[in-house]
Each structure stands twice: as structure tokens, then as C-alpha cells.
């Protein structure tokens, strides 16, 4: 197997706070890799650096062996990376299908066209994507009225629009009912299996993580403290301390330190 995404010594400081501390890992092609850790561990910050939303303080990111550090989200997206956000980012004034069409328009380099009606373009493709995430029935609803879980699924459809080779999913199941969560992760696993997409995701729901991830990394206070398969992670004493002994909040973690 070859490596699709690799980071070397990725670090981010916010003033005095080291949000991500010397993180190095590699993601294999076709792998479903989970990045877990308590609140404030630095997961989202890590994602932001991978996708180019934040420049790292130091360290490098490689995609398919090419260095992509310092590129913006637009360029990284064009290289075949899609992402979903922890707090959904959607076009609230559009319908569900239009949200997806938007990504398709961008992918096909047509956003500067002024003549055609946008709502007719790539509609079928968008509907197919929505169908894949189980949202086809809601395609023409105003996305501002959707339930949060539905928004998350719509975001996934958007992220899949340009057939990415790598998908970054920040808490994809947050705000969903337990049954929905399982369904969404099954869908993700299927996409990985069928389309050969590699996925890096973060998640707080351990059932989801242990049930689907091929491999798991644990981040605490910015640093990677463990890595392995589900069984290994469960058995890891450091992880147990972080999750069970120390509570799941950053502040709590601090007290365990003392």
C-alpha cells in the first residue's frame, strides 16, 4: 500500500498555546483512519492545517508525496481533497441540491459563467450524490430548515462532489441519532471500499470509531500519544488515563498532569 497523506512534525501555536505539537503520521491509500482525542486536543486545528485553512507554525504536509504545506484550501481541494466541517458550513440560502451543485460547478470550472441557469447544471449528478448519502428525498428543500444530521450528510455529498482521493471528516456524526451515526459510518466505509477513497476522520463516539476505523490515532493536548488498531488502543494505558482517568476536557487533562 502506498501513502496518500503524510505529515512531518506538524505544529501549531496560538500565542503561547501549542494546539498541535509535532504531529507526524501517514495515511495509507484506502485506509479509514480515525483521529480521536478529548475536546480541545487539537484535532480540528490539525484538519485545518491539512486542508490549508491554517498555516502550520512548523512541519510539513505531503499529499501523494508532494509537499502541500502553505497551499490554500482551494488548491488543496483541486488536488483531490475534500473535507467536512465540525460545525457545518453550508449555503443557507440555497436548496440542498444547489449546495451540491455549487461544488460541481466549481469542480468543472464553471463558476464564472454568466449565461446558463445554475440550478439546471449538474443537477442529475448532484442528485446522485445526494442519493448516495440518503438525502435525495430532501433535494429541493431549503437547506436552512434541515435537521443538523441531514446537514452533515449534505456536507458529505458536497465533499464527495469532485471525487476526492482523500476525505477529511471532522466529527461527521455529531448531532445525529445513534442509528444514523452507524448508518453514516457504514456509508463512509462503503465509499472507502468501493471508490478507494482514503478517509481521515475525528469522532467522539467510540462505538463509531472502534466499529469502523481501520486504524486509530489518539491526540492529547496537541501531541499524538498512541496509534494502533481498536484493540491496541483500548488496551493502551495512556489512552485509558486520558479518557477514563482524566476526564475528557482539556482543563481536566491539565489537573491529571499535576
Amino acid at each position: 500500500m502506498s501513502v496518500i497523506l503524510e505529515t512531518r512534525g506538524l505544529t501549531k501555536n496560538f500565542g503561547g498555546l501549542v494546539a498541535v505539537d509535532d504531529v507526524s503520521f501517514a495515511l495509507q491509500k484506502g485506509e479509514l483512519l480515525a483521529l480521536i482525542g478529548p475536546n480541545g486536543a487539537g484535532k480540528s486545528t490539525c484538519f485545518n492545517m491539512l486542508m490549508g485553512q491554517l498555516p502550520p507554525t512548523s512541519g510539513e504536509v505531503y499529499l501523494d508525496g508532494d509537499r502541500i504545506t502553505g497551499l490554500g484550501p482551494r488548491q488543496i481541494w483541486r488536488l483531490g481533497v475534500g473535507r467536512t466541517f465540525q460545525i457545518t458550513a453550508t449555503y443557507a440560502s440555497m436548496t440542498v441540491v444547489e449546495n451540491v451543485q455549487m461544488a460541481l460547478l466549481s469542480h468543472n470550472g464553471e463558476i464564472f459563467r454568466v449565461l446558463p441557469f445554475a440550478h439546471r447544471m449538474y443537477r442529475d449528478q448532484a442528485l446522485a450524490l445526494l442519493d448516495m448519502v440518503g438525502m435525495a428525498a430532501q433535494a429541493d428543500r431549503h437547506c436552512a430548515v434541515l435537521a443538523y444530521g441531514d446537514l452533515k450528510r449534505m456536507e458529505l455529498a458536497i465533499a464527495l462532489a469532485h471525487e476526492p482521493k482523500l476525505l477529511l471528516m471532522d466529527e461527521p456524526t455529531a448531532g445525529m441519532a445513534p442509528r444514523e451515526r452507524v448508518a453514516l459510518m457504514e456509508l463512509t466505509a462503503r465509499i472507502v471500499a468501493e471508490q478507494g477513497v482514503s478517509v481521515l476522520f475525528t469522532e467522539h463516539d467510540m462505538d463509531v470509531v472502534f466499529g469502523h476505523a481501520h486504524r486509530i490515532m489518539v491526540l492529547n493536548r496537541g501531541a499524538l500519544i498512541a496509534e494502533g488498531n481498536a484493540a491496541e488502543i483500548r488496551a493502551n494505558p495512556l489512552v485509558q488515563e486520558v479518557y477514563l482517568g482524566g476526564g475528557t476536557v482539556f482543563g481536566g487533562a491539565e489537573t491529571t498532569d499535576a
Binding site: 481541494w77 449555503y91 440560502s93 455549487m102 463558476i111 441557469f117 440550478h119
Partner: peptide
């Protein structure tokens, strides 16, 4: 008419969510 064109949509996208727009390749 521009409002209904891809450009108008991109403009609304930039207004509604700069984060998503940038993350899907819209300058």
C-alpha cells in the same frame, strides 16, 4: 439573470459560507 447564473450562485456561496466556498475551490 446574473443572480441565477453560476456566477451569481458563487457570489451567494461566498456570502453564505466563505469557509465552504474556499474549501470547494471557489476563489
Amino acid at each position: 439573470h446574473l443572480a441565477h447564473s453560476p456566477f451569481g450562485y458563487a457570489l451567494r456561496a461566498a456570502r453564505d459560507s466563505k469557509r465552504q466556498a474556499e474549501a470547494t475551490g471557489i476563489d
